[in-house]
Design a protein around this nucleic acid. Structure first.
Lengths: 228, 228
DNA sequence: CGCAAAGCTTGATGCTCATCAAGACCTGAA
DNA sequence: TTCAGGTCTTGATGAGCATCAAGCTTTGCG
C-alpha cells in the first residue's frame, strides 16, 4: 500500500472535463491542484466556508448535505468516482451552501479556480464541458424536486432501486446499496424507519429480496409499474 | 398601443447575458431570434417536446411545472422579466423536462441554439455568463430542495413572504403576490387550502394583514424569527 | 348591471409519514 | 469469544398536511 501516490495528471485525464487535453496542458492544470485523502467520516468542508475551486472524486464517496437548525440532516447528493462538485459555488464566489463529508475512505482532487482560466483556447473547451456538466446537474435537481413533490415515499424508493439496478453474474437483477441505509433514506427524503418498512413491505409482497446491502429485484416489470 | 413591435436588439441589450455586446454583435444575434407573444394561459411548450434554443422573458410571467400521472401539477418556477430558461435543456440536447405556460400576457424572445455559437470570441464571454447564470439556478434549486425537505409549510410561506418583501410608498413592509394563490401554493409545495389557512393564521396572530393579493408585514422581526 | 365561472376560504375527516422507544442484529477490537 | 459500538428493524402513537365538500367572494363579460 501507499507506494507512489497516483499521478495527478493521469487522474485528470480520465475525467470528462479534461479528457480532450494533451499532456502539456494537463501538466499545467495539474500544477494548480492538490490531492486530498479523506478517512471515512472526515469533513471536507462546512457550509459557509469560502470556496476557491472545485473538487473531483477519484475514489470513495462524498456526501453533500444540509442541516436544519434542529440538527436534522438532509443528504442532497452522494458523489462518486469521476464526478465533480463545487463548480457552481466557485463561479458565484460564494461560500459553500452545503456540508461535505467522506462516506468512506476517499481521494479527491482540488482544482483551484486560478489555475483554470489561463488561455482562452482552454477556456472555450472547458467552458463548454462545464456547461454540459452543470446542465446535467440542473436536470437532475429538477428531477429531484419533481420526485420529492409528486411521488410517495414508496415510489421514491422504487425509483431509486430501479436507477441503481444492475445485472449480476448469476443473471439476476440486483442492487447493491451504495451507502448506509440512513444516508440513502435521507437522500430519498424519508426517515430510516420508513425506508426499512418499505423495503420490508416490498420484500413481503415478493417484488424484491433483501439481504443486508444486497437487494434482488424479482419482478422488474411490476416494479416499473409501481414507479409511476 | 401596439405601435411598433419592440426592437429585439434593444431587448437583448438589457439582458445580463448580452449586456457586454456591441451593436454589431447584437444585431447578428438578433438575427437568430424571434419574439413570441403569449396570451394568459397559453402554452409555450410541453414536457417532451424537442428544444433548439432557450427563452428570455421580456414582460409577463412564465410558469414552469411538472405533472403527476394523477394530473396533479407542481410549479417548479415562475420566470419573470429579464430572466431566461431552457439553457440547460438546450445544452443537453434533450426534450423539455417541464411544461411551460404564460401566467399573464407575456412577451418572450426565443434564441436559437445555432445562432449562439459563431465566433469563439463571443463564445468565451457568453459561456462565462451562462456559467454564472446556471450556477445561480443550481444554487436556487439546492436551496429549494433544502427548503422543501427541512422546513414546515408555515416556514416555507414565511420564507416566501420575506423573499418578496418590499417597502411601499407609505413606508410599510409589503408583499404583492406575483401570481394566483394556487400557483404560489404549488410553488411552495402545499395545497391552496393549506396556503389559505396559513395566511389566515399569520393574520390572526397579528404578524401580517392580508387584503387580496396585497399583504402587509406588521412584524418583520418576529417573522424572521419564525423563518428558521 | 347581473350572471357565470373562477378563485379563494372554511370545515370535517383521514392518510401518510415522522417520532419516540425498545429491541435485534452486525461489526470490529481486545 | 465476548463485549461495546454502531446500524437496522419493529411497534405504538400522533402531528401535519392532503383530500373532499360546501359556501363565499371576486373577476370578467354580455
Amino acid at each position: 500500500m501507499s507506494a507512489t501516490p497516483p499521478k495527478t495528471e493521469l487522474l485528470l485525464s480520465h475525467l470528462p472535463l479534461f479528457n480532450e487535453f494533451d499532456h502539456e496542458e494537463l501538466a499545467r492544470i495539474a500544477g494548480g491542484t492538490h490531492q486530498k485523502h479523506l478517512a471515512k467520516g472526515e469533513t471536507l468542508f462546512r457550509k459557509g466556508e469560502p470556496c476557491n475551486g472545485f473538487y473531483m472524486v477519484v475514489y470513495g464517496q462524498i456526501k453533500l448535505s444540509v442541516h436544519a437548525p434542529s440538527g436534522a440532516e438532509k443528504v442532497i447528493e452522494i458523489i462518486g468516482p469521476g464526478q465533480s462538485f463545487g463548480e457552481a459555488v466557485m463561479f458565484l464566489e460564494r461560500p459553500y451552501p452545503v456540508f461535505s463529508q467522506a462516506l468512506s475512505d476517499s481521494l479527491v482532487v482540488h482544482i483551484a479556480k486560478a489555475s483554470l482560466f489561463g488561455e482562452a483556447r482552454h477556456d472555450i473547451r472547458m467552458a463548454r464541458k462545464m456547461l454540459a456538466g452543470m446542465s446535467m446537474k440542473l436536470h437532475r435537481l429538477v428531477n429531484d424536486v419533481e420526485t420529492y413533490s409528486l411521488q410517495s415515499s414508496m415510489q421514491r424508493v422504487i425509483g431509486f432501486l430501479l436507477q441503481n439496478e444492475g445485472t449480476d453474474h448469476t443473471g439476476q437483477v440486483h442492487v447493491s446499496l451504495p451507502a448506509g441505509k440512513a444516508v440513502i433514506a435521507s437522500r430519498l427524503n424519508i426517515t430510516p424507519e420508513t425506508f426499512s418498512r418499505i423495503l420490508h413491505d416490498l420484500g413481503a409482497s415478493g417484488l424484491i429480496t433483501v439481504q443486508g446491502k444486497d437487494i434482488v429485484i424479482n419482478d422488474l416489470e411490476k416494479m416499473r409499474g409501481f414507479e409511476k
